[in-house]
């Protein structure tokens, strides 16, 4: 697959369709490729596409679409939702992007492999549904299903919402998976004290590295309110409980109705806080109250939270449900 994408990127660079390529390149380890910009055909030698290319590249297009000429960007099915949402918010210029929709079998989760006993990982190879880990303390073989990210267990399906062309591995017919809200439901049934304790425990691990915010395609403000000295939030961030009680909740509110549920926040969290569940709770409520809505499925529909119709749910019902 990787070879096909490199070949196509070279062609598009060569014929002048695009002037740069946004993709992924090898990291220092075999399981941490990183987003990268390629401006020459030679540099594409470092291009990589494998199960660890979970990074959603759509947010990079904010800056890249301001530059002269088109940028080739590779988007997995779930990344296309983020891209559309950014187009909808006038943050990305659709005309400045050439999108190749790539297929995805679910992003691999190296931490899951470690938990399952892989120690001293040297090399990871994928072969269909089998993932083989060569490791210092014993090689391991896993079923792919057991070592994918939680977000991929709630896959929105194989269809790309926007693209200029599709790679050969794209599977537009691949259906969405069930149980997207099963983890949210587990938290919903907790009593308020238990739920508070759950989130306090999770969020207390936050070291405020801002990785969630920086990776989030919905967190694309030119100036984030948390960095804005106009509201003295910078000082408030010094309060002991800020991360536990404020930061993530405020962030979830800010992206409510705009979050496409790409799950990048949880993927990059070094403390393994399941941040995407906060957003998913909002999505679930929005679906319940206003009818099913998927942010980024298109670029022109009115989002329920910034729209009003007389069929909207009554505030009293929202209140009753708490």
């Amino acid at each position: 697959m990787q070879e096909e994408l490199i070949r196509r990127a070279k062609e598009l660079l060569g014929d002048g369709t695009v002037v740069r390529v946004m993709g992924w390149r090898k990291g220092d380890l075999s399981f941490n490729p990183e987003p990268a910009l390629f401006e020459t055909e030679e540099s594409l030698a470092e291009f990589v596409y494998d199960g660890f290319c979970g990074a959603n590249l759509s947010k990079y297009m904010i800056k890249l679409s301001k530059l002269e000429g088109k940028t080739l960007v590779f988007l997995k099915p779930c990344d296309t939702y983020s891209f559309n949402q950014l187009v909808k918010e006038h943050r990305v210029d659709r005309e400045k992007a050439y999108i190749i929709g790539v297929g995805c079998d679910g992003s691999l989760d190296v931490d899951a492999m470690k938990e399952k006993g892989a120690k001293g990982i040297q090399e990871i190879t994928e072969d269909g549904d089998t993932v083989t880990v060569r490791a210092i303390y014993g090689d391991k073989t896993f079923d792919r299903e057991d070592v994918i990210l939680e977000r991929c267990r709630a896959c929105k399906g194989g269809a790309h919402m926007v693209y200029d062309e599709l790679a050969s591995n794209a599977d537009e017919e691949k259906p969405a998976r069930d149980g997207r809200f099963s983890l949210v439901e587990k938290i919903e049934v907790m009593d308020p004290k238990e739920r508070f304790a759950f989130w306090q425990n999770e969020l207390s691990r936050c070291i405020r590295c801002n990785a969630c915010r920086n990776v989030c395609p919905a967190c694309s403000c030119i100036k984030c309110v948390f960095d804005n000295d106009r509201y003295d939030t910078a000082q408030k961030a010094n309060a002991d409980t800020f991360e536990e009680q404020m930061f993530h909740i405020i962030r979830a509110f800010h992206v409510a109705g705009r979050c496409t549920d790409c799950g990048e926040c949880s993927r990059v969290c070094p403390e393994h806080i399941p941040l995407h569940l906060l957003n998913r709770k909002f999505i679930k409520d929005i679906n319940t109250f206003y009818g099913d809505y998927q942010a980024g499925a298109d670029t022109d529909s009115r989002a329920p939270l910034t729209n009003f119709t007389t069929e909207d749910v009554e505030p009293s019902i929202v209140q009753e449900r708490g």
């Binding site: 918010e89 006038h90 694309s220 403000c221 030119i222 100036k223």
Partner: peptide
């Protein structure tokens, strides 16, 4: 205008 993203919300 310095903080506005132009998102139309």
């Amino acid at each position: 205008p310095l903080f506005c993203n132009g998102c139309s919300a």
